[in-house]
C-alpha cells in the first residue's frame, strides 16, 4: 500500500463489469432511439399546435360559469355514481376478498377470487366503462357498474391481504367451540378487518369520485360527459370552468376523506 507513486482513486462503479455497463447504456440509448423512430409522430400537425394552444387557452379564459345549471347537474350525477358504486363495490368486495384470502378459502375458490380481482384491476375504468356502455346503454348505470367493478378490484385486493394477516388464534378459538364457517367469519374474521374496511371505503369513495369524472367521457354519465361535450363544441371557456370545479371538488374530497381516515385509525 505504501509506495511513492501518487495514488489514484476512482469511484467504484455501480455495475462492476464494464461490458455490462456499456451494453446497458447502449440498450437504453438504443431503446429511446427505436421508440422515438417507430412512434408515428405527425410533425406537421404538431407544428400547428402552438397557435392552436394559444387559441384554446385564449378561448378558455376567463372560464365561463354561465351554464351553471348544466355543471351542477353533471356533478350531481357524478356524486350519485360515486356513492352508489362505493356502496355496491365495498359490499361486494367482502365476499370476493374472503374468496381471495389464501388462509381461509379452499384452493379452487382462492384461484377464482384472485382471478376476478386481477382482471378487474388490469382494466382501466374507462375501458370497462366503454364495454358497459355498449352492454347496458348510455347513462349513469354504466358508470355505476364500472366503478363497482373498479372498487371490487381495489378494495378486494387490500382486504384479502388484510384477511391473510389476521390473528389466527381467534379463528382457532371459534373453531374449537364448534362454530361453522359463517360463524367463524362473523365472529373471528370480520371484527378484525372492520376498521380497515371503513378506512378503505372512505378512500374508495374519494377515488371513485375522481374516476366518475372521467368515465363520463365515454358516455357513462356524470360531469365527464358534460366536459366532453364542451370540448367537442369548442366551448373552451365552459370546459375550463368544468375543469376548475373538478380540481376544486377533488381537493375538497381528498381533504375530507383524509380527515375521516385519520379519525378512524
Amino acid at each position: 500500500m505504501v509506495d511513492d507513486k501518487a495514488r489514484t482513486w476512482r469511484k467504484p462503479p455501480f455495475i462492476a463489469s464494464p461490458v455490462v455497463r456499456l451494453l446497458l447504456a447502449l440498450g437504453v440509448l438504443g431503446y429511446l432511439g427505436l421508440a422515438l423512430a417507430t412512434l408515428p409522430f405527425d410533425w406537421e400537425r404538431i407544428s400547428d399546435g402552438l397557435p392552436r394552444a394559444a387559441r384554446i387557452f385564449g378561448g378558455g379564459f376567463p372560464p365561463s360559469f354561465e351554464r351553471f345549471e348544466l355543471l351542477l347537474t353533471g356533478f350531481k350525477e357524478s356524486f350519485q355514481i360515486a356513492l352508489l358504486a362505493t356502496l355496491l363495490g365495498v359490499a361486494l368486495s367482502i365476499p370476493f376478498a374472503v374468496m381471495a384470502a389464501r388462509n381461509i378459502a379452499p384452493r379452487p375458490v382462492y384461484l377464482v377470487g384472485r382471478a376476478v380481482i386481477i382482471v378487474s384491476r388490469s382494466f382501466h375504468p374507462v375501458i370497462v366503462a366503454i364495454l358497459f356502455v355498449k352492454a347496458v346503454g348510455f347513462g349513469p348505470l354504466a358508470g355505476i357498474l364500472t366503478l363497482t367493478l373498479y372498487s371490487i378490484g381495489f378494495v378486494g385486493k387490500l382486504l384479502a391481504e388484510e384477511i391473510e394477516e389476521i390473528d389466527w388464534g381467534q379463528v382457532e378459538a371459534m373453531r374449537s367451540v364448534g362454530a361453522g364457517f359463517m360463524a367463524t367469519l362473523l365472529y373471528a374474521v370480520f371484527p378484525q378487518i372492520l376498521p380497515r374496511q371503513l378506512g378503505l371505503s372512505m378512500y374508495q369513495l374519494d377515488s371513485n369520485l375522481r374516476a366518475s369524472a372521467v368515465v363520463g367521457i365515454v358516455g357513462a354519465g356524470g360531469i365527464g360527459g358534460t366536459l366532453m361535450n364542451a370540448f367537442g363544441r369548442y366551448d373552451y371557456d365552459f370546459a375550463f370552468a368544468i375543469l376548475l370545479v373538478i380540481i376544486a371538488v377533488i381537493l375538497v374530497s381528498e381533504g375530507i376523506s383524509g380527515w375521516v381516515r385519520r379519525r378512524l385509525w
Binding site: M1, V2, A6, R7, T8, W9, R10, K11, P12
Partner: peptide
C-alpha cells in the same frame, strides 16, 4: 464526476492511513 485533483487523493490516502481506515476506502 468525483474527479478530485491527485494531491487531494494522495492526502486522503495519507490521512486515512494515519488514522487506520484506508482499507475501507471503497
Amino acid at each position: 464526476r468525483r474527479r478530485f485533483p491527485p494531491e487531494d487523493i494522495e492526502r486522503a490516502f495519507h490521512l486515512m492511513e494515519r488514522v487506520g481506515i484506508a482499507q475501507y476506502a471503497n
